[in-house]
């Protein structure tokens, strides 16, 4: 069968059929997998929040080990004592707060609209723990994370993640050597909410000084590091009214 593939009508027909076949294939795939993907994303958020609370399966020298996905939901419900949203200076309970899209809420808040800022409460050694979500920009794309603080604004744990930072450089913000440095650092400098700067010049690579509001930067990842500093500052700014109420209690 000799097919004349040079005719315009054939070309158009081919294009239409190809698009239809490919389109329906992808649509079918997307809809049949979307439930599974959503579930993965939910577990991941729960794992991240728990990780920021210091609840994980890390051992002394291990990498980042989350609570396994098959038990994470139960563990999340057990460890997170409350999920709240901060709306217009009021605190409301919301047991789906962990699914809130931070990017949208932060954008709304900056545009002067009402926003729902999620806050998660936990407990560590009998002390209350507050977990704040964060969202910012790295070098290539979005970075985000969770940070848990006690009532004195001392960091108890962090988890950072990124969409597309450079492997081996900026992508290392989600490794333990970087994240562990934040633990014990204070977000306050006197009475001001200074946050924690990712610094290339702090002369404290072992991070022994916990009062300097600085952690050591990653070589070759300056812009991602600055993004992390800015993200922490931004979160503090947006959550400040709420954080004031914690500190004054």
């Amino acid at each position: 069968m000799a097919l004349n593939t040079e005719k315009n009508s054939y070309t158009v027909l081919f294009a239409v059929i190809m698009v239809a076949v490919v389109g329906s294939l992808l649509a079918f795939l997307a809809s049949s997998l979307s439930g599974k993907i959503k579930e993965n994303e939910r577990f991941e958020k729960q794992q991240n929040i728990l990780y920021a609370m210091g609840i994980n399966e890390n051992t002394q020298d291990s990498g980042v080990n989350f609570i396994p996905t098959n038990v994470v939901e139960d563990r999340f419900l057990e460890e997170v004592k409350g999920q709240y949203v901060w709306v217009n200076g009021e605190i409301e309970e919301d047991d789906q707060a962990f699914l809130i899209d931070i990017k949208k809420e932060f954008a709304a808040l900056k545009a002067g609209d009402d926003a729902r800022l999620p806050i998660f409460m936990g407990e560590k050694d009998g002390e209350e723990l507050y977990v704040l979500p964060m969202y910012g920009k790295g070098l290539w794309d979005a970075i985000w994370g969770f940070m848990s603080v006690d009532k004195d604004m001392v960091v108890q744990g962090v988890y950072f993640d990124h969409k597309g930072e450079t492997a081996g450089l900026g992508a290392n913000i989600k490794l333990r050597f970087f994240m562990d440095d934040f633990i014990g650092e204070s977000l306050m400098e006197g009475q001001s909410y200074s946050g924690i700067a990712v610094s290339k010049t702090n002369n404290d690579p072992l991070n022994e000084d916990k009062q300097d509001n600085e952690v050591d930067a990653i070589a070759g990842a300056t812009i991602t590091g600055n993004g992390v500093s800015a993200m922490i500052k931004e979160t503090l700014k947006l959550y400040r009214p709420y954080l004031e109420t914690i500190r004054n209690n």
Partner: peptide, 15 residues
Amino acid sequence: RNVIPSKIRIIAQLI
């Protein structure tokens, strides 16, 4: 290979 019109073969490959 025998049914792709040569005019749009690059697009077809890309797809």
